[in-house]
Each structure stands twice: as C-alpha cells, then as structure tokens.
Amino acid sequence: MTLKKYGFLATLALTAMLAACGDKEEAMESKQPAESSTSEVQTTAEEKIVTDQLGREVTVPGKIERVVTGGILPYFSTWYVATNSTKEIVGMHPNSYNAAKNSILAKISPDVLKAETSFIQNGEVNVEELMKVNPQLYVEIATDENSINKITEAGIPVVAVKAIDAAAAEPLATFNSWLTLTSQMAGTTERADRFLEEGKKVQAELDTKLKDVATQDKPRALILFMHNDKSITVGGKNFFGNQWLNATGAVDVAENDVQGKKEVNMEQIYAWNPDIIYITNFTETQPADLLENKVNGQDWSQIKAVQEGKVYKIPLGIYRWFPPSGDAPLMLKWMAQKNHPTQFDYKIEDEIKTYYKDFYEFDVTDEEIHSILNPSSDAAKY
C-alpha cells in the first residue's frame, strides 16, 4: 500500500470529545484537558515506554495485539486511523460498540464488531471480567482515576488519554494528539502523518474563504448535544461544538452563556433564537422532531432555524463526527457548507467518496453515503 503524505488539521477550534467517565455520553466531550504529551522512549524490542496524557510513563508491549478501550468513547476509531486495523481492539465500552455497530467502520473493518463489552457493568469496569479479555493494553479517559488505578493494580498497562483539549483553538487538536500518541505506540507514524496533513490542508482552505466574512454575516448556530422531552442540553465554550462552529464560519449563540455543556430551558432557546441548529449523535433526536414540532412540552416552531428548515443531524462515518474522528476534515467541509452554502459549492457526497477512497481505501456506495449523512437514532442508544 502506497501512503502519501496527508494528515489532519491542527488549527481549528474543536475541543474534542465526549468524556464517558461517569455519564457515558459526556465523558467523551466535556472534560477540560491539559497539554498532551507524546514523548516516547524506546526500550527493547519486546516493550517500549510512552508518556501518556497525564504525564505518566507507561511500559507497553513492543507489538500490541490486544487493546481494550474504556470511557474514552471514540478512541477505537483513532486506533483504526493510525493502524488501518481494528483486529487489535478486543474490548470496548458498550457506548463505543453501539456507535461502531451503526458506523461505516463496521463495513470497512468488520473486526471491530468482535470486541467484548461485558467488562463494563453498571457503568463501571469489572476487573474480573476484564481479565477474561486478556488485554495487553487498556486505554482510558484521563479523568477516570478510579478505573485507571484499579486496572493498573491488576497488572494491566493503562494509557490515559484526555477527552478534550479545551486550551487549543482548533477542533482537531485533541484528535491529533491521540493520533500522534497512538502511532507511537503502534509504530505507524507514516499513516498518521497523512491524516494530520490533510486536516491542515482543509482548514487552510476554509480559512482562506472565510477570512473576509464579517461577524454580522455569519450564521448564529446552536449545538443541541443531548435532548428529549424532559431535558435540553446544549454545548458552549470549551466544547467540541464551539470549536467546529468557529472553524467553519459560524457564531456560537451559547458561547457567552455556557461553559462546556449545560441544561437549559426553552426560554433560553427563544432568547438565543439561532439561525441554525446542529444535533449531535449522542441524542436520539432527529431534525424532523423539531421541524415538525413533535416534542411534548416544547414549542420549537418559534425558532428561526426551525422556521427556515435549517436543523441538521451531525453525520456519523467511521465514528460520530461531533467528537474527534478520522473523518474530521469531512466534518469541516460539511459544516462549512451548511453555514455558507454559496461559498462552499462542492457536492459533499463526492467529497466523502473521494476521502474514503484515498484514506480508507474503501469504495463507499451512494446508499452508505446517505447513511453517513443521515444517521439513525439507533446510533445514540447504549
């Protein structure tokens, strides 16, 4: 396989990810990060030492063949991006598994569906069940100290990964740090470089087209993170959605009122009155639920975005596009086009087809592209 130089974005405002520590959907997206460390010291052919994102030196096998991923929900897809394989993923969080089952990755690399999930019980890691999976390496969200400690005490190397780089002004900063660390552990830096460079390229293209757009000409957008008839949770500053919006030429209506994510009421939604509403894949709500005013006790018909039909479900490709994923350059293109359709006049279906062929060596069908762009509510269940 010939690998070209490509890669991922390192200049956006995405502060990546759902922190599934405690509540499963959250853990990936709403934790505040510190700087990630990617230094590595080679020891022997049988093992190496990596510095994880808590600054701990962790000894890992020189050849990693059995990986389990916990509350850092999207991480399994990062492993695929870095290595072109999922056969090493022998266990993952049930919420991750559900996303994988409903993703195109299940077709590209069906080994991902062989992963065990039974070691997560009542939201916690059951060490006895985990030992049955026989992992060489466990990857956990950096904020879950309890899981990190008890798994380490069981003799399993644990690499801690931060869910979101809130300090960075780029949406891909978090994913890039994961990809770099993973490529060091797996010894696959050339593949990772392709993605990192592609990200930079796409962001530069967006920046060029958006540099002269005045703030008053940018759409005012809202990220609906979690939603049902009893609760409305939105994303704001220092959260993935805020970075995506900033990077693609939109104004985040919640930016000055919400740090991370926050539950709000309809009165607040009316006050913001966004031009566009984006719905994540961490909730079962679909655009039609708002557009057709189907939600009991909530009247969305008064909102400008609903009145103008500008309510969109964020896609799901090899993973959910809201947190960091290998499809991040596509997320940038998709959202930029929704925010500024006249300036970004490409056909997003063609962009997806080309990207999947170039980076995943996969010929995605028109039907599969439709599924990526219109993910089902099932993908949010766990």
Rank of each mutant, 00 (worst) to 15 (best):
G249A: 01
F362Q: 04
E190H: 03
E153V: 14
G70R: 02
Q298T: 03
K162P: 00
Q302N: 12
V158K: 01
D252S: 13
T342P: 10
K31R: 13
A271P: 02
I223M: 13
Q42N: 12
L206A: 03
M226G: 11
F240S: 15
V58P: 07
K150V: 11
S377L: 02
W334S: 03
F195T: 03
N246V: 12
A169W: 00
I279K: 08
N95K: 15
E124G: 03
V125A: 02
A142T: 00
N149W: 09
A173I: 01
P94M: 06
L373E: 04
A13R: 08
V127A: 11
T11H: 13
T143K: 10
D363Q: 11
K101A: 13
G309A: 10
A380N: 00
T83D: 09
T283S: 10
K114V: 09
K313R: 11
A115P: 06
I141E: 02
K353H: 08
A204K: 09
A142L: 00
P329T: 05
Y6V: 14
M92P: 05
A10Q: 09
P94A: 07
A192N: 08
N176V: 04
L113I: 02
T283I: 04
F359M: 14
I151F: 01
T51D: 01
T143V: 13
V306F: 00
A163Q: 02
A254R: 07
D378H: 11
V125I: 11
K313I: 04
D52N: 01
